[in-house]
Amino acid sequence: MQYQAVKTLEEAVERLSRAEGEHMPLAGGTDLLAQRRAGRIDPKGVVDLKRVPELAEIVLDDHGYRVGAAVSGAELGEHPTLGQDWPGVVEAAQLIGSTQIQGRASMGGNLCNASPAADSVPALIAAGALCSLVGPSGRRELPVEEIILSPGQTCLAPGELVAHFRLPRPGPRTGDAYLRLIPRTEMDIAVVGAGVALELDADGLCTACRVGLGAVAPTPLRLDEAEAILVGRRVEGPVLDELAAAASAAARPIDDMRATAEYRVRVVGVMAKRAAQIAATRAGG
């Protein structure tokens, strides 16, 4: 297998589009190498993106955060403000794998692997993150929830890659959280996951919210009903039960060896409710 480490976006795009399908982009490699070892993929070569500055850095400016797609979970955790502003996003990314995996695994890789159970994706959907994509026909921006089309499939054009995620600098009374259910306590794949981001006003009433759900459909979902349920109300009691019911209603999971569909429907509501409680607490509610 060929390995090439590129230093610029142009080089990466050129390389990936020239040998489309034969060369795969490599960030942390924690999915790619495992899949190759298992014989599920056999690329002719990999293009290592970690040395491209835009993919490897976290930048904070007046527009908010630009988080490089190849930044590792460990680096996300070490950033001085990202974890305070978007604790749910950072926690979700840091749930992936073990301590060793955290030194490699990235949110860009987690998204483009296109697993319905990807932990960072529901949190990014909840946070309203936008993806900056770069490809042969230039740059475009899409919401995270539009990237994954089906298990293992993204909307990326041939040669296109995710360069960075854009996250706003959150206001003062905002909070986010991500929770997943796994039978173990770590090093496992989400049976279900739920990310919630919300904003409260001075009276503790919700003014904005977004909810992302994982492992309950062929792709991670945005729960569109969440806004109607939460906005203008306190994040407590029956409101949370309504949110849980809406999350369960939106879920259309499958039975597999990790859980039954019935269990996933049930528990995704519990995760959404609990994540909303944590997010509200973080928002000062």
């Binding site: 039978p183 173990r184 306590t185 770590e186 090093m187 496992d188 794949i189 060896m257 990790r258």
Partner: peptide
Amino acid sequence: NPGFLDYRIPVASD
């Protein structure tokens, strides 16, 4: 589930 991902022996934190 022929692997330690889905054959769940406890990990240390369990």
